[in-house]
Design a protein around this nucleic acid. Structure first.
Lengths: 189, 189
DNA sequence: ATACTAGCTGGACGCTGTACAGTTCGCAAC
DNA sequence: GTTGCGAACTGTACAGCGTCCAGCTAGTAT
């Protein structure tokens, strides 16, 4: 609304403030637009490009921000890698469920590429290594789990579906995840 | 190129020809645009709207056309429903792998909604019913399998990845699918 | 022969992401 | 302190997107 600021005047933006605005927008309307983000910040659309290279980078930033909420406890010596992986993916699923609007964004780019995403991936690979799975096999198993998780989360926001209670979906997710992890681990025995 | 046709002149379009052009375009460049499809047909962009309601309807049509290639043998009396489901999903996977460009489109709309898609879904639900799984549980199991299949197919077209040979990916898909189907069937025992 | 309809064109609208040039502020160096 | 410079921001603009509207016309039905 307030468009009274000449060129050269600073608006006090920052990468964080831009990502905040984009995150809010994504959570509210599900539609992130450079112009919409700019308007919400009371700024010209191009101003964003001083803090963000691309729209993709912006969206990646938002996705990664949300992924920061995932609980990824590091490798503990005595524990079972299968349980650890199960917990990590369940936490991821919970986070995604809590942000239904951006699940399609995750789907569209087949996961995320930001720092947090890479960290989560690295932790998973460690657990897989403990289970004796490394290299390409580990990467493939990881991607299977990621796609399974994101895909399942997508059902929560799916349109024209009978509203299956969240608790039930969560239980189904849990069961399928268990099958997959069991299969992955046993594939190396 | 050839733009010599006045208003009123017919170009001999049809829904099929439009879908053909869109399918070719998707297979070649991966980018379907109303304008691009129109250009390939030597026609103004709006002309398409005489044969297709929407762009979404167009894409749905293309996806469904490809799904027609899936081999979905009907329920046979003596057979194992697990094997039948396995075959159907494997065939689907093969079709998707053969059309990597449109897998992202499948992902984006969480499957397809056309006639062939519904038919495949119905066949799967029959097999699930034979296995004793009905209602919401069946629909959920089906969606798990769909997401798993599409997601796995997406890896084949994924960028900046070491080219894992198709045969290997196919084997991995097969194994994971087996885990899932086994789990689904045993969940009702 | 006449009316109607379906298929098409030309043009336009509002939306998108983003590049270019110009203005000005804040800060560092002399 | 003055000067200079880079970073932040505005205004404008461009190309491309999906899609609507109005008009023209070829074929069909009456």
């Amino acid at each position: 609304m307030r468009s009274s600021r000449g060129p050269g005047q600073r608006a006090g933006l920052s990468r964080d403030r831009v990502l905040d605005a984009a995150t809010d927008l994504l959570a509210e309307s599900g539609a992130v637009t450079m112009r919409a983000v700019a308007q919400r910040l009371g700024v010209a659309p191009n101003a964003l490009y001083s803090h963000v290279a691309d729209k993709t980078e912006l969206v990646d930033g938002v996705l990664d921000r949300v992924l920061a909420q995932v609980d990824a406890p590091p490798l503990e010596p005595g524990g079972s890698p299968g349980d650890a992986m199960h917990r990590l993916m369940t936490s991821t699923h919970g986070v995604l469920i809590r942000h239904p609007q951006l699940v399609p964004a995750f789907l569209a780019r087949q996961g995320a590429r930001g720092a947090n995403a890479r960290h989560l991936g690295a932790v998973m690979l460690e657990h897989l290594a403990v289970a004796g799975i490394t290299g390409d096999a580990a990467r493939e198993a990881l991607r299977v789990l990621i796609v399974y998780t994101i895909g399942f989360a997508a059902f929560d926001g799916a349109p024209d579906e009978r509203p299956v209670p969240h608790s039930e979906l969560r239980a189904d997710f849990d069961r399928g995840l268990h099958w997959l992890i069991t299969g992955i681990i046993e594939s190396v025995r």
